[in-house]
Design a protein around this nucleic acid. Structure first.
Lengths: 207, 207
DNA sequence: AATACAATCGCATAAAAATGCTATGAAAAT
DNA sequence: ATTTTCATAGCATTTTTATGCGATTGTATT
């Protein structure tokens, strides 16, 4: 029996969720409020939620700020963001901020229920649409006009690992001047002029 | 009607999948091979797959290398990795490499079918367990014993953006020596000694 | 045969980064 | 009241990076 908290300022949606979830045997819903502030107000030892359903775009606070606040008070709780948007950027931020999942507000109630069951079970609810977005987020956005060669790719990996030119040269048994040459070429292809930019691009999946 | 290709060296599993999927109305299975090499061998205009189910740990090639190879020949195809492991690091690599999804080999056949249907529909199959792993991957792993101050955080962001010390100094209207000082402190707290490592840590959610 | 590109190496130089040491004022904590 | 932390700053030195120019070899393509 998992205790759910709902933080959502659309009263209609909130009451719908509250009513629906309270009706299920697996869930109870002891907190149902319309803002983060109210949530902390109402929160007590007796009604600590296991799972928190929270609107991402609540007025006042930014989504990821409130996330951090909740995580700090209730590190054990699973947080699921409710949203109408499915902007990958936002999804990413929320997941980084500590959300365990992400649900579109227009999802059917049965789906929401199913998701919460999975969550209680240690999985993370993620609808296929959203999963696709998340995957797209850290996938190479577009092919480079000038793709990197294998060697150049090796060198990029070395840079990401924090190796110096010298260390990369040793790792691949080539001269440091060769490393320089490859890096020159990488910079030209990526249109950058520093290690930092290469690393950032690589880790953001742009290479 | 989607055409599936199966690349999997466990003959039993491969034939099971082949038989099962061919039986479904929505799918055909024109290619069923046990290595990437064979796959390219057999591939022709007539049997181009829409979806490729591929073992991640095929002998010979690394998972992500073969991914790249497939993506190059068949950029339109959806690739789903088959695996027994659910190592988040590997999952991440594959998704970065162009996989659209990721299935555990011991998944029930009905589940696999359902996933493939979703994939054909533009979503990305991701089991809750794996979704959880992926989410965990880009979530702050643990709080730093020595957390960064606001200013230090600013400087880190500057580094990630590819700014030089000089540019960071200008951005925040401080001296370049102050930037140096902050960076020194950041290095100490993170236990590193280069920009590269800071950027990597930041983008991997370790800060 | 000619062209293109990948991988290799060298030398030189300017710019940037890493590090050692020191220091001051303000704010926060003890 | 004293200590700690944060943000600020300067100076000097070594190491690393960024970049310009030139060059050879092998492989693949045309």
């Amino acid at each position: 029996m998992k205790n759910i908290a709902i933080i959502e300022d659309d009263i209609e949606l909130r009451e719908l969720l509250d009513k629906y979830l309270s009706h299920q045997n697996e869930f109870s819903c002891k907190i149902s409020v319309d803002s983060i502030e109210d949530f902390f107000e109402v929160l007590s030892e007796e009604n600590k939620p296991d799972i928190i359903l929270s609107d991402i775009g609540l007025p006042g606070k930014q989504g990821d700020e409130s996330l951090r606040a909740i995580k700090e008070k209730l590190p054990e709780a699973e947080i699921v963001m409710l949203t109408v948007h499915d902007d990958p950027e936002k999804i990413f931020k929320c997941l980084q901020g500590g959300a365990s999942g992400y649900l579109l507000k227009n999802s059917p109630l049965e789906e929401i229920k199913k998701y919460l069951s999975i969550l209680a079970d240690g999985g993370s609810p993620m609808s296929p649409r959203i999963a696709r977005k998340v995957i797209e987020y850290f996938r190479p956005k577009q092919k480079l006009e000038k793709p990197l060669t294998e060697r150049e790719y090796d060198i990029v990996v070395g840079l990401v690992e924090g190796l110096s030119y010298k260390m990369i040269a040793d790792k691949y048994n080539i001269s440091i001047d060769t490393v320089r040459q490859h890096i020159r070429n990488v910079y030209r292809k990526l249109n950058v002029n520093s290690k930092a930019e290469v690393i950032t691009k690589k880790l953001r999946g742009e290479i």
